[in-house]
């Protein structure tokens, strides 16, 4: 065997994708249900007090943020939990002793998480279209953006999964960093509604740029220039992908 182990890469990717589809009640349905609840509870109730933001009805305004939150939560937790699970359940040696390179192993995990992120993001988007007749200004760009964010957070999840030793450590990363950054990234508000100091802080939150970007592709509105969102997302994609591959290559916390 020389060059790329394509069958190996395909098999591991297939395993990763089949794994989350086999437990769709845990991995696909919750995002749909919680998004529908957000739309009903936050959207319909708050819309009476905040009728519009940037000229868009409040329910529509929060939908791109919900798409993004589902996308990044699902993509990161897929690769993180899968990697940690394989470590803790003694499945990882099967992968590490196979003729698969660090790059191939990483790609398989990242693609697995990306597929879950895209599936969840697109399904929430469809919920928006069906429930509140959400218009999508640039459908292809929206799906492309969901894909890019899924890849970014799947890579981040893989990185965290490799470095974590326990479920507690993994949960800490997700609960104390990812979720707060998502909520503070402007899912439910425009950052122009915040005081100056809070706006400045939001500018260093990468998730803000992702929500801003998808809001632009879906609704055509934005708080910051869409190009900045694209640049930041591409930068984060490259950063986390390279970091995940380098950690895998080093064997840190995986090989002794």
């Amino acid at each position: 065997m020389s060059g790329t182990n394509w069958i190996g890469l395909y098999t591991l990717t297939q395993r990763e994708v089949s794994r989350f589809f086999s437990v769709y009640r845990q991995t696909v349905l919750p995002g749909l249900i919680s998004s529908a609840l957000y739309i009903m509870i936050f959207g319909f109730t708050l819309e009476r007090r905040i009728s519009e933001i940037n000229g868009v009805p409040y329910t529509l305004f929060i939908l791109p943020g919900l798409i993004m939150m589902n996308t990044l939560t699902n993509s990161s937790s897929n690769s993180a939990s899968s990697m940690l699970q394989m470590k803790l359940l003694q499945q990882l040696p099967d992968i590490l002793t196979a003729p698969l390179s660090s790059l191939e192993i990483c790609l398989a995990y990242i693609i697995g998480g990306t597929v879950r992120g895209v599936v969840n993001g697109v399904l929430v988007m469809l919920v928006g279209v069906l429930l509140v007749d959400m218009p999508i200004e640039q459908p292809l760009a929206t799906i492309g953006f969901i894909f890019l964010v899924s890849w970014t957070f799947s890579s981040l999840g893989l990185l965290l999964g490799q470095l974590a030793d326990t479920w507690d450590q993994l949960a800490m990363m997700q609960n104390f960093f990812l979720t707060p950054l998502s909520f503070l990234g402007g899912i439910f508000y425009s950052i122009h509604m915040l005081p100056d100091w809070a706006q400045k802080i939001s500018m260093i939150n990468p998730i803000y740029y992702m929500i801003n970007g998808i809001r632009y592709t879906v609704l055509g509105i934005y708080d910051s220039p869409p190009l900045n969102s694209m640049i930041m997302t591409i930068f984060m994609t490259i950063l986390f992908t390279v970091a995940a591959i380098l950690v895998m290559k080093s064997g840190k916390k995986i090989k002794q």
Binding site: L89, Q90, Q91
Partner: peptide, 29 residues
């Protein structure tokens, strides 16, 4: 090399036949 590790793995998701096909796949088969 084919290795049978001392530690027995646990897998909740797939039947053993499928796991064997996966394993063959990792080796490019």
């Amino acid at each position: 090399i084919g290795i049978a590790h001392q530690e027995l793995p646990i897998d909740w998701f797939f039947p053993i036949e499928k796991l064997l096909y996966f394993h063959a796949g990792y080796y490019g088969i």
